[in-house]
Structure formats: C-alpha cells, structure tokens
Amino acid sequence: NRRVIAMPSVRKWAREKGVDIRLVQGTGKNGRVLKEDIDAFLAG
C-alpha cells in the first residue's frame, strides 16, 4: 500500500473519473501523479 504523491485537485479528478489513483504511474517530480497521468491511464 504505497503512498501516492498527488495534488488534491488531481485526487479529486481521479475520484470523478472512477480511477484508483494507486494504480496510476506518476510521471511528475518524485513520481507525482499528474492530471495527464490520469487521462493517459484512462486512455489505456
């Protein structure tokens, strides 16, 4: 159960899209999950 680094707005975006943010690979600094990462995860 790893800790995910993400801005609150990104966490909210993931929740709205029904995405478990822990499954998303972050591409930002220090592995931070970005809004673009959520979109890419949804795109496959």
Rank of each mutant, 00 (worst) to 15 (best):
L42I: 14
V33T: 04
K12W: 11
K35W: 07
R15F: 13
D37G: 00
R15V: 14
G18I: 03
R32N: 06
R2Q: 11
I21M: 05
I5M: 08
K12A: 12
W13K: 15
P8C: 15
G31C: 07
I38Q: 01
G26N: 02
N1I: 13
A6W: 04
F41R: 03
I38F: 02
R22L: 09
G28T: 01
L42G: 04
R2I: 11
E36I: 12
P8D: 10
T27G: 04
D37W: 09
G26Y: 01
V19K: 01
T27Y: 03
A14L: 04
L34H: 05
R3Y: 07
A6N: 03
R2T: 11
R22T: 11
L34T: 11
D37S: 01
W13G: 14
N30M: 10
D39V: 09
N1P: 14
G26H: 03
G28R: 01
G26L: 00
I38D: 00
E16L: 14
M7Q: 13
I21L: 09
S9L: 07
G26Q: 02
R32K: 07
G31D: 04
A6C: 09
F41I: 07
G44Y: 13
R15Y: 14
K12G: 05
R3W: 07
L34P: 00
V4G: 06
R3V: 13
V33I: 14
W13L: 15
G18H: 08
G18S: 06
K35D: 03
T27K: 05
I38R: 00
K17P: 01
Q25V: 14
K12I: 08
V4Q: 06
R32T: 08
A40M: 12
G26V: 02
L23P: 01
A43S: 11
S9P: 06
R15C: 15
R3K: 13
V19I: 11
L23Y: 11
L34V: 08
R22D: 06
I21F: 03
E36Y: 08
D39I: 11
G18Y: 05
K35R: 12
A14M: 02
V4R: 06
K35F: 08
V10Y: 02
L34G: 04
K12S: 08
T27S: 13
K17D: 03
I38H: 00
D39F: 06
I21T: 02
K12D: 14
G26D: 01
V10I: 07
D37P: 01
A43R: 13
E36C: 14
R3L: 11
S9M: 07
R11K: 10
F41H: 07
R2E: 08
D39K: 07
R11L: 12
L34S: 07
R15K: 15
I21Q: 00
L42N: 05
A43E: 12
K35Q: 06
A14T: 01
V24Q: 01
G44E: 14
D39E: 10
I38M: 02
A6H: 04
V4N: 05
P8S: 10
A14G: 03
Q25R: 14
A14V: 00
G44F: 13
Q25W: 11
W13M: 15
G26M: 01
I21K: 00
F41D: 02
E16Q: 13
T27Q: 04
K12E: 13
K29R: 13
P8M: 08
L23S: 09
L42C: 07
A6P: 04
A14Q: 02
V4W: 05
G28K: 02
R32F: 06
Q25P: 13
G44I: 13
R15A: 15
R22F: 08
V33L: 04
A14C: 07
G18K: 07
G31Y: 04
R22H: 09
N1E: 12
K29Q: 11
I38Y: 00
